[in-house]
Nucleic acid binder design. Structure first.
Lengths: 207, 207
DNA sequence: GGTGTTATGTTGTCAATGCCTACATTTTGA
DNA sequence: TCAAAATGTAGGCATTGACAACATAACACC
């Protein structure tokens, strides 16, 4: 009856996300995906030239959602540059914890390898935002002795490292029974004090 | 003439590493691997039950080499717990930069997913070593206000995050023309002062 | 030195997959 | 209305991972 599916593109993306969540990126097969949805094995090609193209689209959607989450968190943090950068770091890890599927796709080596120009530009722009945020925090008094690039790379490394460490839920789970969200916040608070005020207080006490 | 290859197992591993270095983990095919070496397509099965088994073996070799590199770096750092932990962090990133192939295999999601018990145990043990190192540094005066788990997770996240950030050599190369080894060292020095003396000096100046 | 056993490699086969092409049906818009 | 574009189908092809049956080499033991 309905020869045309109507919204196959979105259905493909949704079901693909489900399959990846259940197993992994590698386990995703275009033919199985088509079978699941109840459409012929050639149909997906009309919407995604390639398997890479589909994963690319998923990664893009993930980046969109993540940047929205980060924006929101940063705005909620107010005007203090340290608070904003701190919030950005925490929000990054939180996104990874709450959206493991998207996060996995976004960081999968094969996906990154075949990322198209648009996706690459998006990633680049996002990194640039983090860089600016780090520089702002530095100019407000955070790590004044380090150059801006080091400060940026340090905070970025901590955030993505924490995300990858805490989302790694394979056999060797080092964080069994631990509140990883809380741990994530604590990590970021070590990276950058949660406010300019906290930074000053820290400097007063140290002698 | 020589119907038996003689050391097919090692040859497979070596050639596999080359192929991965040239392209990627996904691009590795058992049949192409066999063709390259000049052996029938069924031969690899005698040495590796599975494609996963081969990658597992490669990952294991990578972890072995890395732990040797870390041991060496830590011993060379002397007795100061801060210097040792600092050296461990730097050596981790350096290993990733100098052995991108092994590092990629070791951290590839598909490889981790199919890691056998032995490999998992090895990874677990390695993490435990880092945890001990972090605790020692903490007891020597580093970040005394944070709990040991936070201190461990913070330093580990920074190291693996820096490794992944600095080895990500895709289109969007944010670190074009930058001395990444130097940057890596600077990042780790922000994470943990390179010596107990440096830590004290830092605390004196701060007021 | 012969011989049975194990280790190693070969060949053939199968199902699954990604991608391509030719074709069918629906939708659209001038 | 009807031609063109969009969307879905069906079949085919080369590649791949895994398996099984077989061949040969290496080795241990008498």
């Amino acid at each position: 009856m309905t020869y045309h599916h109507g919204n196959l593109r979105q259905t493909l993306l949704d079901r693909a996300a489900e399959i990846i969540a259940e197993s992994s990126v590698e386990a995703l097969s275009l033919r199985k995906l088509a079978r699941d949805i109840g459409v012929s094995h050639g149909a997906p090609a009309r919407h995604f030239k390639d398997k890479s193209a589909l994963l690319n689209a998923l990664a893009h959607e993930g980046h969109l959602r993540m940047s929205i989450a980060l924006d929101k968190a940063v705005e909620a943090a107010g005007m203090d540059p340290l608070a904003r950068h701190n919030a950005m770091g925490k929000a990054t890890i939180k996104f990874a914890l709450k959206n493991p599927t998207f996060y996995n796709v976004m960081n999968h080596p094969d996906v990154l390898k075949h990322a198209d120009a648009k996706l690459n530009a998006y990633i680049f722009a996002q990194l640039h935002l983090v860089q600016t945020s780090a520089s702002d925090a530095r100019e407000a008094g955070w790590l004044p002795d380090q150059d801006p690039l080091t400060v940026f790379a340090f905070s970025t490394a901590a955030a993505i490292g924490a995300a990858s460490l805490l989302t790694a839920r394979h056999e060797t789970d080092f964080f069994e029974g631990i509140d990883v969200e809380k741990l994530a916040d604590q990590i970021i608070d070590v990276v950058i004090p949660p406010s300019l005020k906290a930074l000053k207080a820290l400097q007063e006490i140290e002698p």
